[in-house]
């Protein structure tokens, strides 16, 4: 134990600049087709399926910001002493549906970093909360992502 330095823990509370994006019918249609949705409201692109935001707010970065494995570096995160990512989890509360034409504002915050002793050694957990609201301030959803590093 003791992988987490004061310097590393000081990153808790760090927030990314909010991202504002307009949802189009085309965005919803592409997501719905790619995930094999069956409900017409989703396939027609009027209303977004419940996990649409995962794709919609996936980071878009330039080619030279991608690692050799094709993954982008998440700038919200500090460099952790463990790097191999294990399964993570998502916990989402939906307040309202996302519809074509919505202007959405997403803000991500690194809300926690902690350490646990696993069966094969130390594990680092971190949590990122993403708040999504419309540009008029109406809450749309809150998502907490927990990731485990070994």
């Amino acid at each position: 134990m003791g992988l987490l330095t004061e310097e590393l823990l000081a990153n808790i509370g760090k927030t990314e600049a909010p991202r504002t994006q307009v949802v189009t019918e085309r965005d919803i249609r592409k997501y719905s087709i790619a995930t094999n949705q069956t409900q017409r409201k989703y396939l027609d692109g009027q209303v977004a399926p419940p996990l649409f935001h995962v794709a919609f707010f996936w980071d878009v970065v330039e080619l030279d910001e991608l690692n050799a494995d094709g993954v982008s570096v998440d700038k919200l995160l500090p460099k952790f002493p463990l790097e191999r990512e294990m399964a993570g989890g998502l916990d989402i509360q939906h307040h309202d549906r996302i519809r074509a034409g919505d202007t959405l504002v997403a803000t991500r915050t690194l809300t926690d970093i902690y350490e646990k002793e696993g069966r094969s050694g130390a594990l680092i957990f971190y949590e990122v909360v993403m708040q999504v609201e419309r540009d008029d301030g109406t809450p749309v959803l809150t998502q907490k992502t927990t990731r485990i590093l070994r």
Partner: peptide
């Protein structure tokens, strides 16, 4: 759908 929790 108002709440979703899952892990891979």
């Amino acid at each position: 759908v108002v709440g979703i929790e899952y892990s891979n």
